[in-house]
């Protein structure tokens, strides 16, 4: 086991770095898509509402792997060719964003009515009320479910190995193919994924939850 790590550890770490890059970029895509689609679902303009619903249902109704293959293999036929790295984090981000949109929508509707009315009474414009009053409070409500969703997102990034993005899972597969030491290769990958999820994402989200609660004076 020790000499396995000495030989293949650096390669696994390289893979883990690519996984981290995929995770960060996909998380950015997911957050922006979720915010736009979540607000779109609540918009009074019906074309926006329909568009947001269509996006959410389409990406929640099919599986991530199908979306990944479709974006990577079929989109080029429409003239939109994406390199594998970009196709990877975009599909993962868009998929998770569709789930995130429902969280955003739920959190916004959960902000008490009085807050909306107060914004109205102060004659704030709808955009300003959303930005200054509603969204900050909704953010606190949606952080805990986002913590879970980000772990799902990390797990989702493992699929980009199937379009040959050299991430952690891809490296593990390669090592397994050349050495047949499957238990060590995939075992090490599983442990690294676990460490990323439990020692980085979960504590970071907990910290963020505490900071946000304090800034809103609820700690």
């Amino acid at each position: 086991m020790w000499e396995f790590l000495q030989t293949y550890g650096p390669r696994l770490l390289d893979g883990a770095l690519v996984t981290c890059a995929q995770f960060v970029l996909a998380a950015l895509v997911a957050c922006s898509a979720a915010l736009v689609a979540g607000l779109g679902r609540l918009s009074p303009v019906w074309p926006l509402r329909t568009l947001a619903t269509l996006y959410i249902e389409l990406f929640r109704g099919t599986s991530l792997l199908v979306q990944l293959y479709w974006i990577f293999f079929v989109l080029p036929l429409f003239g939109l060719s994406l390199p594998k790295f970009e196709a990877g984090f975009l599909s993962v981000g868009l998929n998770v964003g569709a789930y995130g949109a429902e969280i955003v929508r739920g959190a916004i509707t959960a902000v008490p009515r009085g807050q909306w009315e107060a914004g109205y009474a102060l004659s704030m414009s709808p955009a300003r009320r959303m930005r200054r009053i509603i969204l900050p409070q909704a953010l606190v409500l949606m952080l805990p479910p986002w913590g879970n969703l980000l772990i799902e997102l990390l797990k989702g990034t493992a699929l980009v190995a199937l379009i040959a993005v050299p991430d952690l899972m891809f490296v593990a597969k390669q090592i397994n193919g050349t050495t047949f030491r499957s238990a060590e290769a995939f075992g090490a990958a599983l442990v690294i994924y676990y460490v990323l999820a439990r020692l980085l994402i979960t504590p970071a989200m907990r910290g963020l939850e505490r900071t946000m609660a304090r800034r809103l004076g609820r700690a």
């Binding site: 797990k155 493992a158 699929l159 899972m169 593990a172 499957s182 238990a183 995939f186 994924y193």
Partner: peptide, 17 residues
């Protein structure tokens, strides 16, 4: 908190080992 694909590979390839 670990990806299902990696678990699938793990179980499929570790069995023969």
């Amino acid at each position: 908190s670990t990806p299902l694909v990696v678990q699938i590979f793990f179980i499929f390839y570790v069995g023969p080992q």
